[in-house]
Design a protein around this nucleic acid. Structure first.
Lengths: 202, 202
DNA sequence: CAAATATCTTGAACAACGTTCAGAGACAAG
DNA sequence: CTTGTCTCTGAACGTTGTTCAAGATATTTG
């Protein structure tokens, strides 16, 4: 009875590892079901006995990446820092994570589920955890905001920082040059942190 | 001699129009070479006598969209406004354009050229024109910045605003809710505009 | 332990995709 | 009208993700 479940987990792990390696090497766009299963040392069809589809497998790779991002951000911005510095440290941590784990980080945003399929609950939860990491110091800077407004502003701040990193690294549009990225993001957050207490909006 | 060239242009126009309609209806992800050529009333292979590839055709659709965005932004932020208000107006214009032309706007960022193919020069130029639209009022707010730093900061500001809109509308990550989007973007830009003159960084 | 049964793994086959190209057809020149 | 040149056509190709009958393997039963 035990052997079956164990080997099923082993299969999932092997496929996840292989997919991660392939993404690191060739980006999400270069990920093929055949390469992935070959690298994992299993048959093509086995992918579909371990996961519902290739898309759902990618989602699991992304879940791992999200967990690592969460950990890195917590490590980068300890709770004993003053709130403004903590915000800057979070932004810096995000930039460095994106640079260090670029293909896996990019996969978080490049991957789209097919039309009908909803994002799983634990994914949204992982996002919310990261948002709360921002909402913490933000609450100290904006004691006037309620929990609702705080959550809203945290998402907006994250999205702003993310946007700068994203355009810079994907290089589609004319983004911030890579060499200036970290400094620009820090300047952005500092401007926001300075602008925030003086503002009555939101 | 004239008939040949004329019909070639006509073919390109028909294909571009059809592609645009298909993207509006089903998004960039739902665009198929076969649907597109069927809608244009031409054979599948004709696509490749008018354009190098489907990717390059999409790039032309995006060029049209970029031109419309440029026009809309100029219209939304007249030059006689005070610089801070102009910045807000530009951001508001961007949000509204994204909402109004959502699938075509999304195609600007969802579409990626294959590995080796570089972004054409006129595309980068169209981007730069939009950046200059931001750099104008920014120069008044930050007379201390040189042309280099100004261009840099303009790209960062655009990317920040874009990030908020992008995460909100693609709904991949936990973004700003649609109802709050315009207000949040305006608050973001106001914070930045307020934070900017006090800051010595950059 | 051996036979029977349940389960999983395998890779050929399938449908759908972008792309190509030999042949049919349309146009210009003589 | 005939000839030659260019263009348009859609069947065919290679490559995707996905499926599924058949063989291999594990588990249960006698």
């Amino acid at each position: 009875m035990g052997k079956r479940e164990e080997s099923r987990e082993e299969l999932r792990r092997r496929l996840l590892d292989a997919a991660e390696r392939r993404i690191v090497e060739g980006g999400l766009g270069g990920l093929r079901a055949r390469d992935l299963t070959a690298e994992a040392g299993v048959a093509l069809g086995s992918l579909y006995s371990a996961f519902e589809s290739l898309d759902l497998l990618i989602l699991q790779v992304n879940a791992r990446t999200l967990a690592r991002l969460d950990e890195r951000l917590r490590h980068a911005a300890p709770e004993d820092l003053p709130p403004a510095e903590r915000m800057v440290a979070l932004a810096r941590g995000y930039v460095r994570f994106a640079l260090a784990e670029r293909p896996l980080w990019a996969a978080l945003f490049d991957h789209r589920l097919p039309e009908g399929v909803p994002v799983p609950e634990d994914h949204r939860e992982a996002h919310v955890r990261i948002m709360r990491l921002i909402a913490g110091p933000l609450a100290r800077l904006r004691p006037d905001l309620g929990p609702e407004g705080l959550s809203l502003r945290a998402r907006t701040l994250f999205a702003a920082v993310h946007g700068v990193v994203h355009l810079s690294l994907t290089g589609q549009f004319v983004g911030t040059p890579r060499e200036a990225l970290e400094d620009e993001v820090v300047a952005l957050v500092q401007s926001l942190v300075r602008g925030i207490p003086a503002s009555a909006s939101g």
